[in-house]
Amino acid sequence: MKHPSVVRTDTGSSNQQFSSKKYLFDNPRNIKILLGCFYVSLFILLIIEFFISKHPHYPWEAWPEFCSIRLCGMCCPGRGRQIHPETVGKKTRGLL
């Protein structure tokens, strides 16, 4: 049961009204421009480091591009134990 004042769905008829309108990222060219700007920013960030003196706490921070290379830590998206609601009661009975 949902409280009527809490959740309201404003889709439906308004969907027709907006469906033909084009928005910023509906044009693939704009996405390419955005990605291009992003890659250029990354390049600038890589270069600019050589012009800034560092005050590292640890010796590894003094190495060039250490901050950039830390992205490796983020390339390990985990996958925990996920259960589809449909399978509950079958093979996953023991887990829930």
């Binding site: 960030l45 950039s68 490796c72 134990r81 259960i83 589809h84």
Partner: peptide, 28 residues
């Protein structure tokens, strides 16, 4: 640098199809 290159990691993961799919699941 940390944030932009993390964004790069996300972009590469997403565009290479490696990023975990969003699923209607119960996570244990």
């Amino acid at each position: 640098q940390l944030l932009f290159f993390s964004a790069l990691a996300f972009t590469l993961l997403l565009l290479s199809g490696i990023y975990p799919a969003e699923m209607r699941c119960i996570n244990l």
